[in-house]
Nucleic acid binder design. Structure first.
Lengths: 145, 145
DNA sequence: GGATTCTAGTTGTATAGTACAACTTGAGCC
DNA sequence: GGCTCAAGTTGTACTATACAACTAGAATCC
């Protein structure tokens, strides 16, 4: 097996390990905010408010799934819906203050966990690793982010 | 924000994107073998047979979860149980021939998907990317693989 | 300008994966 | 032989998810 083939093997294996771990630990780390909820809140912050349908399209989730997630986030007081005055079918979702706070907290603690894991890495390696990941994810597959 | 901090941000974001995608697409790619089942079969192959309890410990899953997964895999004819003659509480799990075949197929198609995604990468970058991932996963976190 | 068709979102129903707790069965140890 | 420990199963519940059917509002088309 060539060096390139063996590297592909390794990348596959390690990415799979990472995915499994992320899935297993996501719920335990932040019982108040599942990985999906966190991602949705994050997207709302970045986008400055968007529709349920946009979230579904962006993350390749069914609209019913998003609808229930959104309902839960609203029940928890983390987001609010504003009826679009132009089109009454549309509900534009926004973070509440509480939502912004929780998102900031979770982001902070997630960031801390990553940083700790990467603490010994020279800056040069961090930058290169980040570039590789971006390149990998930006690849020709599903453009889901 | 320093270059290192911004790289950590990027790594966190891109790893999260990857994990979400893997989770979303795993079921669709191989309807006959979920990501968990695939991982369990893979471990059985690597280890050459082990106990249900070992799988649970290794992947930080509850023994009841593994019990049901194993039952499904047995129902599907992909693994078989052999009673440990030394200790009749213990069932040693082994891949059947059918299990080996399916595992090989799924491994092959997963590998093809990865390879396609990485097809334009120079060998040097593949090798470095693989090394970074290994280093990341080998870090001080949970040693779940 | 009313009927038809499209779109946003909700609700009903089903499934997979998971955890926790209670239980069963066999092993090991005074 | 009778406690205690270990391996695994089963009951129950919850979360995330999808698909399909539905509701309500918007847009379009004679």
């Amino acid at each position: 097996m060539s060096a390139a083939e063996s590297a592909v093997e390794t990348i596959q294996r390690e990415m799979t390990i990472f995915a499994r771990r992320a899935r297993a630990s996501a719920g335990r780390m932040h019982p108040e905010l599942s990985l999906v909820s966190y991602t949705l809140l994050g997207h709302l912050e970045e986008s400055g408010g968007c529709r349920s349908t946009d979230l579904a399209a962006h993350y390749a989730l069914d609209k019913s799934t998003v609808s229930r997630q959104v309902a839960a986030l609203e029940r928890a007081g983390l987001i609010e819906r504003r009826l679009d005055p132009e089109d009454h079918r549309v509900q534009v979702l926004h973070l509440t203050e509480a939502g912004q706070e929780i998102l900031a907290q979770v982001t902070h603690s997630r960031r801390a966990a990553f940083r700790e894991r990467l603490t010994d890495w020279p800056e040069e390696d961090l930058v290169r690793f980040a570039a590789y990941l971006e390149r990998y994810n930006a690849g020709p597959g599903d453009a889901s982010d």
